[in-house]
């Protein structure tokens, strides 16, 4: 399962395989809607290394949030295997999973999800409550974390006394106050204007670089995604190999011949041939070439998805 991008990051990971924050193999998540079932994820495999910075892009409804929920242990896969911080979530009960989230994961949501009527410092301290840390120490830790996100002067402000950007900074401080291994940010700038959004992104990237927390960022913005060390493109519940991704002007044919690569073409070929797949307006561009600096990584993800893509979009659309 070794992967080239999985170099041990500074700090490493508590427990589990060193340097790996989350390891997912063939993850599936199907929702049962009284009779009919909706497959939100259909076989996603990926590894998030400690200290990694991964951008997840894809159209609305492609399963990005579902994937984030799974990676954060907020939800359980209906198929496949998932290890968070080296622990197989299938072996954990709801309480153990909650404790694992508390110790390992930080969430940042598009809509902030701060407790109203609760001060910034108490909002940030909330995860520490469930660690059994006493009130005074909690406040000290939360205040220090708020200082790191530039809100040291806003400790006792309520969410409704803060701007959107400030609220998201509070949420980031809350996500990081527990010193997690993995920070999952699902469209964190979706509710912010572009300037504020940019500064929030900058903060996330700074924290990723300085504290060694792995960052998985869901975004619509291709430019933003391009700043990540790695991109994961999703469509219809699967990870799309870059060659298949119409919006990425980068294909890595050189890597296709690599020893670890299973060519995704067999699954992609019929889709191009059909030419009617609305998700592939530039289906014919699949032949375009151009390496990215991360070419070694993207196919690796493609390799894992290879098996499922055949059963995924190919048969499902």
């Amino acid at each position: 399962m070794s992967r080239r991008e999985a170099e041990p990051a500074p700090g490493g990971v508590r427990g589990g395989r060193p340097g790996v924050a989350v390891d997912a193999v063939d993850l599936g998540r199907t929702y049962d809607l009284g009779g009919t079932s909706v497959a939100a994820l259909r076989g996603v495999s990926l590894t998030i290394a400690a200290g990694d910075y991964v951008a997840v892009v894809g159209p609305s409804g492609s399963g990005k949030s579902t994937l984030m929920h799974l990676l954060g242990g907020l939800d359980r896969p209906t198929s496949g295997r998932l290890a968070i911080g080296g622990r197989d979530v299938a072996t954990l009960d709801a309480g153990e999973l909650a404790t694992l989230r508390n110790e390992t994961i930080g969430f940042v949501f598009q809509s902030f999800h701060l407790l109203p009527r609760t001060s910034a410092v108490d909002n940030v301290a909330l995860p520490l409550v469930y660690r059994g840390i006493g009130g005074r120490r909690r406040r000290t830790m939360a205040a220090a974390m708020l200082g790191r996100v530039g809100l040291g002067h806003r400790l006792d402000h309520r969410p409704n006394q803060l701007s959107g950007g400030e609220q998201q900074r509070v949420a980031i401080a809350r996500a990081l106050v527990t010193d997690p291994v993995l920070l999952l940010a699902d469209e964190p700038t979706g509710n912010l204007d572009s300037v504020t959004g940019e500064s929030v992104l900058g903060l996330l990237e700074d924290l990723n670089a300085s504290s060694g927390v792995a960052l998985v960022l869901v975004t619509h913005d291709r430019e933003v995604a391009a700043r990540a060390r790695r991109q994961i493109v999703m469509r219809d519940g699967v990870v799309v190999p870059p060659a298949d991704d119409p919006d990425t002007p980068t294909v890595v044919p050189a890597a296709r011949g690599g020893p670890e690569i299973v060519d995704p073409a067999p699954s992609a070929e019929p889709r191009r041939a059909s030419g009617s797949d609305s998700g592939h307006p530039f289906g014919g561009s699949g032949g375009a070439t151009g390496a990215t600096e991360r070419r070694g990584e993207i196919p690796a993800a493609g390799k894992r998805c290879g098996g499922s893509i055949g059963a995924g979009p190919g048969g499902g659309s």
Binding site: G72, L74, A98, R101, L126
Partner: peptide, 9 residues
């Protein structure tokens, strides 16, 4: 939210 930050059932 409480569950997301680690509250057990």
């Amino acid at each position: 939210l409480r569950k997301a930050v680690g509250a057990r059932p």
